Amino acid sequence: MSRQDIVRALIEHQGQLYSEEIGASIARDTPQELFHWLIGTLMLSARIDSGLAVASAAKLREAGLHKIDTILDADDDRLVEVLTEGGYTRYREVTTGYLKDTAAWAKEEFDGDLRVLRDRAEDADALLEALQGAKGLGQTGAAIFARETQLVWDMLYPRADGPALDAARDLGLPTEAEALRDLAGGRETFTRLIAALTRAALDGPADEVKAAA
């Protein structure tokens, strides 16, 4: 099997974006979808199973608590209740505080539009640093946000780091973003490849990926 076969198998079988899984359509590049992805990355960056983080971020959307104003207006107990429904129990009280603080930060600093943060940043490093103004979002969370937002933000593309590169190395693929981009063949397929490699690192490669490798 060739590297191209491995890439195709990864994209086909493990290429769902985490943002898609929580219900955020970041391809639309709208303030609401980007904010939902931001709080999703906040939850994914905690020391908790990624599946529980995804389920809980999706539950917030189901409850209408993925928007800045609804989060700010919500009772803390209601936020804790929804996080609990998603299985996010370990850090639910702390995360409730983070959600409130992040919503307030996004509203006060950027009028609820994270594209303003992007436009103010001089480069990708400055953008990642600015993202860490969100309460509870450190370097890991900023990197997670960038990993999929590169689908629509030119400043971040192409980007590959973290566990995705570990999986690439294990599967015999290049570990340079540009080389992986060339194998993927396009911006969306590259973004999906990075998501797939991240899933392969965290959950193990799909059987089809193993067969291709």
Rank of each mutant, 00 (worst) to 15 (best):
Y157I: 08
G133N: 13
P163V: 13
G162V: 08
Q139F: 15
E178I: 09
E176Q: 06
A184W: 03
G133T: 04
G162Y: 00
L128T: 10
D182E: 15
L131K: 06
L171F: 05
G172L: 08
T140D: 12
G162P: 12
A134C: 07
D161K: 08
K135I: 12
W153G: 04
A177I: 00
G138W: 03
T149I: 12
A164M: 07
D119F: 08
P163F: 09
A126S: 07
L180H: 04
A177E: 02
G133M: 15
D182N: 04
A146W: 03
Q132R: 11
I144H: 04
Q132G: 05
R159Q: 09
A143Q: 05
L171H: 00
A179V: 01
D125V: 09
R181Y: 01
D125A: 15
L171N: 05
A168H: 02
A168K: 02
L151T: 11
L180G: 03
L173P: 00
A167V: 05
A160W: 07
D125P: 10
R159T: 11
D123E: 02
A168I: 01
L131M: 15
R147T: 00
D161G: 02
D166Y: 09
G172V: 03
R159W: 13
P174F: 04
G141I: 04
P174C: 03
L128K: 14
F145L: 02
L127Q: 12
L127Y: 15
L180P: 00
D182T: 14
A177D: 00
A134P: 09
T175A: 00
T140W: 15
A179T: 02
G136V: 08
